[in-house]
Nucleic acid binder design. Sequence first.
DNA 1: TCGACTTGGTTGTCGCTGCAACTAAGTTAG
DNA 2: CTAACTTAGTTGCAGCGACAACCAAGTCGA
Lengths: 157, 157
Amino acid sequence: MDELESAAWLSLVGLTELLPPSLDAQLQTDAQLTHFEFQVLSTLRFAPEQTVQSKDLAASTNSTLPRLSHVVTRLEQRGLVRKLPCPTDRRATNVQLSDDGRRIVIRATGGHIDHVRRLVIDRLDRDELAALAKIGTTLNRALDPSDRFARHIRDAD
Amino acid sequence: MDELESAAWLSLVGLTELLPPSLDAQLQTDAQLTHFEFQVLSTLRFAPEQTVQSKDLAASTNSTLPRLSHVVTRLEQRGLVRKLPCPTDRRATNVQLSDDGRRIVIRATGGHIDHVRRLVIDRLDRDELAALAKIGTTLNRALDPSDRFARHIRDAD
DNA sequence: TCGACTTGGTTGTCGCTGCAACTAAGTTAG
DNA sequence: CTAACTTAGTTGCAGCGACAACCAAGTCGA
């Protein structure tokens, strides 16, 4: 690897190690949510009926079904979501945002966006944002060929 | 957030969620190492005497001292590193790469670099690499003002 | 229509990391 | 010199995520 390749790679590794803890910390102190929980709630918030089937929720949040199952169980215990049996497929469960959950996620979103702006968006100019979007898309496609991820936060983030 | 900002942000979040598992998976199957363990061993490999003090090793690998302590304990049990008392400060411990550890990390490096190339480097042109390096540096500085991270893999990665 | 296979989901266990508490060694002010 | 403080490191516990095993429901072929 030459200088440029190495610099690009190291900076990318740095990002993947530093960014997630920063997001978790902000959301944890401001809203008692992990970033993953926030993603789950945000996805539900913008879904029709505030309801999404577990399998699809897992795909949207780029998680596995076991992981989601655990998290949804905890969120349900906190009263932020409900689990409903799916009427058309009795194996499936639909996850629905509760009123409490809706209030929580709405209140959390503002501060989270502020944080993302201060940390990332506002530090890059338009050209850099465009470059990042393009590079990110390319690499995400390589990392996740099924490309199921991340069509969710959209209006939230 | 407008379209461009949102696209950049989502692609960045995607990267931070997809890249680390990919690195861990490759290193785990090819060398029975987590990416973090690989970083530790790589750092030691290029240090004078193959030895680094725990505190500095923690800083170089962007980890906390407790985390490093646990990992070094495991690596020592596997015979890949040694813990030596520091001669000049009796509180400190120096971590040294063993011969086995050296062989392991050297054997692991080639495959790891191949993986990184296939996944990232080879998918970007020179302009994109330069943009990524610049953006990454900017954001890393925002995320980690002390900037202690990532002066290590250098020749390895 | 019945057996084999697939799909949706849950549960249990294990391993790793964060955090707080703690020990030990070094440093500094009086 | 010694009491207060800081620094280096370890340990124990708790929480989360991966994985495998499992159950239940749906599908499909003969």
